[in-house]
Design a protein around this nucleic acid. Structure first.
Lengths: 205, 205
DNA sequence: TGTACATCAGTGAACGCGCGTTCACTGATGTAC
DNA sequence: TGTACATCAGTGAACGCGCGTTCACTGATGTAC
């Protein structure tokens, strides 16, 4: 950590980083203002210059997380290129990759018990992420004959739930403790079977 | 609450009940020994006659939860009657029903960060619940021609993940906040699509 | 049935701790002239 | 360039609090004879 004088210069960011590390390491309640301040090398009172309190800091983590999540999903979808099906599967992989690469954000978003209305912008960011999933589901379902199309939001909810469930049950704690499959294998095979059930034909093995 | 003398008579059970209420109401960290003792109408020191500490009490909740979970799943499966398919779908409903009826247990089992090795019996109970799912998945997959059978543990993992994901994302907090579908609708439709993808034919709509 | 005594399951006071947060303060920085 | 001053972003001490846990204790219960 670089030397610094009386003023930190970048404390808000440093506190966010510290909180993310603590949350990723010890769960949503393993983060305290005091410890985040210590990690950022400032006194315990300093964080209150940047956040009204603990709640606000966590809400900010969740908001940033949803923004990042939406960006990554959007990038993975790439307007449905090269094909809706391939793009959709890329979105699924991005979901898992986000949880793995940004565990602190993920926990703040989904496990901290934060309420979406607690910060202005949180609900908006969460909505944006959801919009990407809805668009992917919508575009893909257009490939089916009209009478077999599932409701878009149901479709998206299934994929979200499967992804989230795999992350919570099989990507946390001791990997492989629950079986011989990686989370990625599980998600890919699960989405594959699901899509076949919807009527997207795949090479039958 | 009934009058009592110096001895409570049933304190261990009362503490477990109190802890379940607190956890269901306020999350895995919204439970404290002190508050559980107060709910049970004893001093803060009394719980230590029955549990070595907070960890052990939570582990006991999780263990009981897995036993109950296994019982319910087993009852729902009923040896595959009347048909493996119907029994399998009953298991899916039982999964959701358990989370709804026993939220304290569910949280202790899956969201408390408890380690399966922390109490003798916890891992065994969790294993037993998993065995029921594996058996249901196995029996059902026998209905498919051999070359199309999915690995049993993968099959069971998909169903677990979908169920768990739906519970975490759509059954908590404000119901319906995330869409017009109930958790039960989502699970039933999701399992239906998945099973069709595996080759179980259903009336095509 | 009565008594002595071991055991059990509580009490209440105390501990050390870390937490979130407030407050008066002060050192550093930026700006107007 | 220099000076006065407002503002900003820290400090450090203190607060009240509730927590998990320990300890010596005591009232209640069960048992041997």
């Amino acid at each position: 950590m670089a030397k610094r004088g009386y003023h930190h210069g970048n404390l808000k960011e440093a506190l966010i980083e510290a909180a993310l590390s603590l949350i990723a390491e010890k769960g949503p309640h393993g983060f305290t203002m005091a410890e985040a301040a210590k990690l950022a090398d400032v006194s315990a009172a300093a964080p209150y210059r940047h956040f009204s309190g603990r709640e606000e800091l966590i809400a900010e983590l969740a908001r940033q997380g949803f923004e990042l999540f939406a960006d990554l999903l959007e990038y993975a979808y790439r307007d449905g290129q090269p094909s809706p099906l391939a793009a959709f599967e890329a979105v699924g992989r991005a979901y898992l990759a986000f949880a793995r690469k940004h565990p602190g954000h993920y926990v703040a978003m989904f496990e901290s018990g934060i309420l979406p209305n607690s910060e202005r912008g949180l609900a908006a960011a969460a909505g944006r992420a959801n919009q990407v999933l809805l668009r992917a589901a919508h575009d893909l379902s257009q490939r089916l004959p009209a009478h077999r199309r599932p409701p878009t939001d149901m479709f998206a909810a299934h994929i979200s739930a499967l992804s989230h469930g795999i992350i919570e049950l099989y990507a946390r704690s001791a990997p492989g403790a629950r079986g011989p499959f990686t989370p990625d294998d599980l998600l890919e095979s699960g989405i594959g079977i699901y899509l076949r059930g919807l009527g997207f034909l795949e090479p039958d093995t």
